[in-house]
């Protein structure tokens, strides 16, 4: 689905990722874990074309995307839920969703009813300004906004950051269901172990701009030494 080879990227002269390589299998939920500052968000932004690639290549579903503009990457099926959600606070919920529909016009978009079916709260509050939402509701909106464009793969950057634990679980369960139903591939950057255990099939551990270890979720459930090694400060 997503193959990254010898990627180098960063801000200005400073490279955050050097010679980064990894493969994300189709139809699975892959979690990317690691301490802060290890390059996870940089990786997500680089995949989306928001940070310029210095060298290396990124293949997505058979297309080289490392030189494509962001909107093009989005249109060929890469959904992105950025860190901090970045919803349009002044717009209504419906307008936030409409934006994504307009951005993917002519593509493989989902009917809005499907989105409302998955996330009924968005239907109830369609005309409410998104800025009045709680953190968890904004996160749901950000996910729905990415899904409505009919992505083949979804990038989620720290979706549980600053959100009540009860909603975290709901979001995890719902995403898991959607992934199973639709065959959507997900790459999720996450610090919250519960979320990873609910959702992920496979876990990658990142340190110093490279993948250090990968394991499946069963291994992680039985043995949490990897978590200690890569997450504890």
């Amino acid at each position: 689905m997503l193959e990254i080879e010898n990627l180098a990227a960063g801000y200005g002269e400073a490279l955050v990722l050097r010679d980064f390589s990894c493969r994300i299998a189709p139809g699975k939920v892959t979690a990317l874990m690691g301490r802060n500052g290890m390059g996870k968000t940089t990786l997500m932004k680089t995949i989306m074309g928001l940070i310029r690639v210095k060298s290396g290549r990124i293949m997505f579903d058979g297309t080289a995307i490392e030189k494509l503009p962001t909107h093009h990457i989005s249109r060929i099926g890469m959904g992105y839920v950025p860190q901090g959600r970045e919803i349009f606070a002044d717009f209504t919920v419906a307008e936030n969703l409409r934006l994504s529909l307009l951005g993917h016009e002519g593509g493989n978009v989902l009917p809005i009813e499907q989105i409302y079916d998955w996330f009924p709260i968005l239907k109830e509050r369609a005309e409410q300004r998104a800025g009045t939402f709680s953190g968890g509701q904004q996160q749901i909106l950000a996910i729905a906004r990415a899904l409505i464009g009919g992505p083949k793969m979804l990038l989620l950057d720290e979706p549980t950051e600053g959100i009540q634990p009860s909603i975290v679980h709901d979001i995890g369960a719902q995403l898991s269901r959607i992934a199973r139903e639709t065959g959507l591939s997900i790459l999720i950057v996450e610090q919250n172990v519960d979320m990873v255990r609910t959702l992920a099939d496979e876990v990658l551990f990142m340190e110093n701009g490279a993948i250090q270890e990968r394991c499946d979720i069963e291994t992680l459930r039985q043995d949490d030494s990897l978590l200690h090694r890569y997450l504890s400060v």
């Binding site: 962001t70 717009f91 951005g103």
Partner: peptide, 15 residues
């Protein structure tokens, strides 16, 4: 208005 408010986010929505 979306592009004015958050150009990067707008782009990642396919705009």
């Amino acid at each position: 208005r979306a592009v004015i408010a958050r150009p990067n986010t707008a782009a990642s929505l396919g705009i």
